[in-house]
């Protein structure tokens, strides 16, 4: 059987909220190392990879690997029933048909029990190579969300260009064009707002704003986002889960999107 308790139900709630609009059904693979979910959106344009290591759980027991086929919007509906400071326990029997979800308030005076029906999901799994990227930009996740939203006003494709000086987001559409440049700033008052750029060569790639917009729904998870790019390969937009700022969290939520190419 599988049983795991997360001290903050809100973390799981934010994770599922972040992906439920992009991916409807997904398999959460549970093993002794933790919980993982990999899924593509319905048009197979982007990929979500969620990794929750056992370290981030208060209690984690998994006797045998289990696959939990989950309808994410429905899971999100149940997670919304948790209180802000509740813990959450997930339980599933081997080959069980349901996922039990139990919320407990801090003083354990309120216990809520739910069951979510599991599904058989036929999803293909992809091997994501562990690669170094030409450019890694770390910035405020709220700022990235705002830029993507602002770019969407003007068009559907955004160019992200990066040099040592800064990162430039550009868009053009029927009503005009716009761009926003963020300069590399290591010495700002608020550490969370710093823009740091590690890069080998300047790079500029074009991305569909619709998908970047989906990715930024993960902003409440972490004040910082890491954007990694290399020529002709998918961009990675990554958020730490259950960690602080830039430090490695005990989990991560990464989104992959291929750059647009000229026909």
């Amino acid at each position: 059987m599988f049983e795991a308790t997360l001290q903050k139900a809100s973390t799981l709630k934010k994770v599922i909220e972040a992906i439920k609009d992009l991916v409807t059904d997904g398999n959460i693979e549970v093993s002794e190392t933790g919980m993982n979910l990999q899924a593509m959106d319905s048009s197979h344009v982007s990929l979500v990879s969620l990794v929750l290591h056992t370290d981030m759980f208060e209690h984690f027991r998994c006797d045998r690997n289990v696959t939990l086929g989950i309808n994410l919007p429905n899971f999100a509906k149940i997670l919304k029933c948790s209180g802000n400071d509740d813990s959450v326990t997930l339980k599933a029997q081997d080959d069980g048909e349901n996922l039990a979800i139990v919320f407990e308030s801090e003083g354990q005076e309120r216990v809520s029990e739910f069951e979510l029906k599991l599904m058989d999901i036929d999803a293909e799994s992809l091997g994501i190579p562990d690669q170094d990227y030409n450019t890694n930009v770390k910035m405020s996740s709220a700022e990235f969300q705002r830029i993507v939203r602002d770019m969407t006003v003007l068009g559907d494709t955004c160019s992200i260009g990066c040099t040592k000086e800064g990162v430039k987001f550009s868009v053009s559409g029927d009503l005009g064009q716009g761009n926003i440049t963020l300069r590399q700033t290591n010495s700002v008052d608020k550490e969370e707002e710093a823009v740091t750029i590690e890069m080998d060569e300047p790079v500029e790639l074009n991305f569909a704003l619709r998908y970047l917009g989906f990715f930024t729904k993960a902003s409440p998870l972490c004040p910082r986002v890491t954007i990694s790019m290399s020529p002709d390969v998918p961009i990675v937009v990554a958020y730490n889960v259950g960690g602080e700022k830039d430090t490695e969290g005990a989990g991560s939520l990464s989104f992959y999107l291929a750059p647009k190419i000229d026909e």
């Binding site: 593509m40 048009s43 197979h44 344009v45 982007s46 990929l47 293909e124 799994s125 992809l126 091997g127 994501i128 190579p129 494709t157 074009n206 569909a208 390969v233 998918p234 992959y256 999107l257 291929a258 750059p259 647009k260 190419i261 000229d262 026909e263």
Partner: peptide, 14 residues
Amino acid sequence: QQQQPKISSFFNKK
């Protein structure tokens, strides 16, 4: 005109 490649064309199937 730009084309959107599928993500599956970048990663190998497991």
